[in-house]
Design a protein around this nucleic acid. Structure first.
Lengths: 146, 146
DNA sequence: TATTGTTATACTCTATAACTATA
DNA sequence: TATAGTTATAGAGTATAACAATA
């Protein structure tokens, strides 16, 4: 008899899935000549410039760690620091043209590979997967209807 | 009108989920006094001792990187290297008593938090999620029935 | 005084290249 | 010769603590 591995529970499945996504992300980053951390930073900036403090929260990095990370991608010409207008202590980190191209390419590569991997599933499963996961992270309505 | 975020596709959902699992893993590791990489190594060893070469493949680390990682957890008394019987070049890496306790505790903490997070979903969704994810990684039958 | 970000320092993590020992 | 693992080295990632500049 073979172990089916199908009744091991949700948590192990989530862990396995996360590791796979991590590897996909690491491979795509490396092929684009950057580290996974740098890729994650660049991908966050695709939507537009972000301040250091917000980046620090989103990436869950100490501010000094973020300083170093931004330094290294800035040194490579992928981002630049822009002084904030309202508060002259703060910066916005923005993608350069080169950084935008790299971020777009790396992000597209990750998405393509994840979808290739998911292609084994029937369309219905893929839709359900997306819906359920999205539900896990949906904002709690904060007791809108008491 | 609010952006529903529900039709963004499967890949972004998977990425978001993976980041969440990573954070859960990082938090649990830190609270147990080890790094996420060390925690991942220890968790791999819960099932039993594993050789360096296999660890290298599973963790996708160069052998020299693995040497350092094992060195650091060995220095802390969490694992020990055991010479292989058949091939005197090879080692098995095994948890010590202390390492076993730590690995079990950290793993349990991660599982508990992931399940807490998933507790927002109805039971049916949780089951489906586990089943679908498991299906993504199931071994391909290798054309057992042509 | 509190906040934003950097610098200094010390680890950990990782890869590449060269090496040792065994097969 | 090929394989298992280590050592040497260099760079990247991270946190803590102390600091500067602005609010």
């Amino acid at each position: 008899m073979t172990t089916t591995d199908a009744e091991l529970g949700l948590a192990p499945a989530l862990i396995r899935l996360a590791h796979h996504v991590n590897h996909v992300f690491a491979d795509a980053s490396r092929e684009h000549g950057i580290t996974p951390q740098q890729a994650q930073l660049l991908c966050l900036l695709i939507a537009g410039p972000v301040g250091m403090t917000e980046l620090s929260r989103t990436l869950r990095l100490e501010k000094s760690s973020l300083t170093g990370l931004v330094d290294r991608v800035e040194r490579r010409g992928l981002v630049r620091r822009v002084r904030g207008d309202c508060d002259r202590r703060s910066y916005l980190v923005a993608l350069t043209e080169q950084g935008t191209a790299l971020a777009d390419a790396a992000h597209a590569a990750v998405v393509a590979r994840l979808e290739t991997c998911a292609a084994r599933l029937p369309q219905g499963d893929r839709d359900q997967l997306a819906t359920i996961i999205t539900g896990m992270f949906a904002e709690v309505p904060l007791q809108a209807a008491p």
